[in-house]
């Protein structure tokens, strides 16, 4: 059996590695020709860290991320509601997680040795891109995921349901807060603020400029009802 995975984001590459581990050949097609940092971070949930570790990527992940030690829920004014230690959770900084123009997170361009994931070059890639130009095929992520292969493969499913919430992300350079390993979620069901450190200054550079020692880059997300 040979499997084709459309989209070289974190989900597509993990699926390909899982298939490889099961002895199934997988080939990943990605339409974006260059991997470029978008300037965001991502917090990997315990399930994801567990699976990436099982795939042999635990050490690589540890080298580019900050382990989240504690998850804290707070009122929108900052008062703590609940805080507890977390297991298997990590935050990754943006330089290692380039993103496509449509916003889906991609993993590092350096692939693990010996894996069956191949870069998207050559005739097949050209065919895929040509299909994209004609609107016949797109990747699995992005703002309109159902305009792509899902629409072609499952035309009866209709458009995805939307919960009327919008998410903004940002990565400011900021002073450390709390123990530098705490993820803070503040607000309520209609308005929420999420913050977690993704990289420390003494081991990172942004646009070539060294950061103040001890500072970190929290990534910030806001969810609002529209």
């Amino acid at each position: 059996m040979r499997v084709i995975v459309i989209g070289g984001g974190i989900g597509g590459l993990t699926a390909a590695l899982s298939l490889h581990a099961a002895g199934i050949e997988a080939e990943v097609f990605e339409a974006v020709p260059d991997l470029k940092p978008l300037g965001v971070g991502i917090n990997l949930l315990p399930h994801a860290v567990r699976e990436l570790t099982e795939l042999g990527l635990g050490d690589a992940l540890a080298g580019i991320s900050i382990a989240t030690e504690k998850l804290m829920y707070a009122k929108r004014f900052g008062q703590e509601i609940w805080a507890s230690p977390v297991a298997w959770r990590r935050a990754i900084s943006s330089p290692s997680t380039p993103c496509t123009a449509s916003g889906s997170v991609r993993t590092s361009p350096s692939r693990p040795q010996g894996r069956a994931v191949r870069p998207t070059r050559g005739r097949r890639d050209c065919q895929l891109r040509r299909r994209q130009r004609h609107g016949r095929c797109r990747g699995r992520g992005g703002r309109h995921p159902f305009s792509g292969p899902q629409t072609q493969l499952f035309p009866c499913e209709g458009p995805p349901k939307w919960n009327n919430r919008v998410l903004w992300r940002g990565v400011p350079d900021a002073a450390p807060y709390l123990d530098e390993r705490t993820m803070v979620v503040a607000g309520h069901q209609d308005q929420k603020f999420v913050c977690y450190p993704i990289r420390r200054s003494h081991d990172a550079k942004l646009n070539g400029a060294p950061r103040r020692r001890g500072s970190c880059w929290p990534t910030v997300a806001m969810v609002q009802s529209r």
Partner: peptide, 28 residues
């Protein structure tokens, strides 16, 4: 508070015991 936190973790499957003892989803 403790019951809400525990039930959320159980529902999400992210409590430490479940997470560390269940079989991997990606590697058989």
């Amino acid at each position: 508070l403790e019951e809400i936190a525990a039930s959320y973790k159980r529902m999400a499957g992210s409590d430490k015991e479940t997470l560390n003892t269940r079989a991997s989803l990606s590697v058989g």
